[in-house]
Design a protein around this nucleic acid. Structure first.
Lengths: 252, 252
DNA sequence: CCAAAAGTGTTGAGTATACACCCATGA
DNA sequence: TCATGGGTGTATACTCAACACTTTTGG
């Protein structure tokens, strides 16, 4: 058996949604999972995050054809028969950005038939993280172009991708509070100031340096390295995460 | 535009999964969301929970045809063109149990091609809650039968439904800790003892009555009613939830 | 009047927050 | 030597967990 889809659905910052009611269509016999009529297509779309210039950014591609031509969207595409959802997400991400081998987590599935006016496409949204925005290169003939955008200043997005963006950002922020997910947005070695700046950037709030240090160190997630980062002033100790697998821990 | 899919992905109790690596297939031009080749089907499956006999139970149907005939599974079926995922889940749930108008939340999507050996079916898993297990009646010719099972003693399940069960249970437990989701497993009016017993049952741990009362009351989610529940002994005050929409609050 | 479930406060421990100064280096 | 970012400790407020007896009713 293959590896399960990567993703732990967990973010806490959501408000209420529609819960009760909803139209319940009359019963339709489905012929047990096999009807002859048209079926929705399945796609994956991935919100790729990175830090650049002290800002949290995500990568958008410009659609080159179809009803949404010219609009910006997250890289994605249809799932092939025989591949897992994770594989499809990695394949599409790799095709669009050259970055397929990164942290990847399934977020949520969007299936409103009106999300794409030309066809009923169910899209499984993913979030991906990389530590180097510069490593991405637009490398697909499929898209008219690709570019990093500050999450606070996204252009108008195609389909329902604005909802995906919102969902991804909330998930990312939530996981910053109770997992070690931050390691995927940092280089292998980093200073405490860099880690703290990352947290402040993603969470959009200042952190107390002493309290932050104490808590992070108390968890034992980091290993202090012998090397130092030498800059214009006092050198800073370098750290690295002991583990890069996702760990659920109360962090902040 | 229709209502978005209902669901806030959030549970905290998960362990790490596979994160990096994974095979990245060579780039395939997709013809922009429209390829002529075979595509995966899309289904929904719903883990329906209720309390019965002081135990947390979920409803399973027995498959009547196909490769998994005779095995137990969560009620579900293929998504129709033109309906949202929520609508599909409600339709299938209503067809199998008569219960379509209940709390419903999307959990996660499972797309491993080997999950169903006869076809590549991507399934969007849902969780649903009802306050009365007895209201369910097997009412589908599609299935050989339906029955409530204690979550701790599920039979062998078809496809990858055991993973779904695990996922749903973790999500439910997590939401008990930080939302008012419990209201959907209780009758409209209830005693504090009933609420506490519900929490103890779902979380599988005893709670201190005084601390529990204090915290729940301090949140102001409940309204005390004038009526009392009269039983064999001292009468108990009745309460009701002020709101049934999902609220994110630190509860325990 | 007895059995059984309902209802009620306090204390101590541990955790989270607020806060300011010295240090090491390069220029 | 000075400007700049790196690094460190303490006191207080608050939150969480542990704990047992009295009240009310029906039988």
């Amino acid at each position: 058996m293959r590896a399960a889809e990567s993703g732990q659905g967990d973010f806490r910052g959501t408000q209420d949604t529609q819960i009760r009611g909803g139209s319940v269509a009359p019963r339709v016999a489905d012929g047990l999972r096999d009807a002859p009529i048209a079926r929705p297509k399945v796609a994956v779309d991935t919100v790729l995050f990175a830090i650049a210039g002290g800002r949290l950014k995500c990568y958008l591609v410009q659609l080159g054809a179809g009803s949404a031509a010219g609009k910006w969207a997250f890289p994605g595409g249809l799932v092939h028969v025989g591949e897992t959802l994770d594989e499809a997400a990695r394949r599409e991400l790799s095709a669009s950005t050259g970055q397929g081998d990164r942290y990847l987590e399934q977020l949520f599935s969007f299936g409103d038939p009106s999300r794409d006016p030309t066809a009923h496409v169910v899209s499984i949204a993913y979030m991906a993280l990389i530590d180097d925005a510069g490593a991405v290169q637009a490398c697909s003939q499929k898209y008219a172009g690709g570019q990093w955008f500050e999450v606070a200043r996204l252009p108008a997005l195609a389909y329902d991708h604005a909802v995906m963006a919102d969902y991804a950002l909330r998930r990312l922020r939530a996981k910053f509070e109770y997992t070690n997910i931050a390691c995927h947005l940092l280089k292998r070695n980093f200073t405490f100031a860099e880690l703290e700046e990352l947290y402040a950037t993603v969470l959009e709030r200042p952190l107390d340096r002493r309290n932050f240090r104490r808590r992070i160190l108390a968890m034992g997630l980091l290993r202090r390295l012998a090397d130092q980062r030498r800059g214009a002033h006092r050198p800073a100790a370098l750290y690295t995460f002991r583990q890069h697998s996702l760990q659920m821990i109360e962090m902040l």
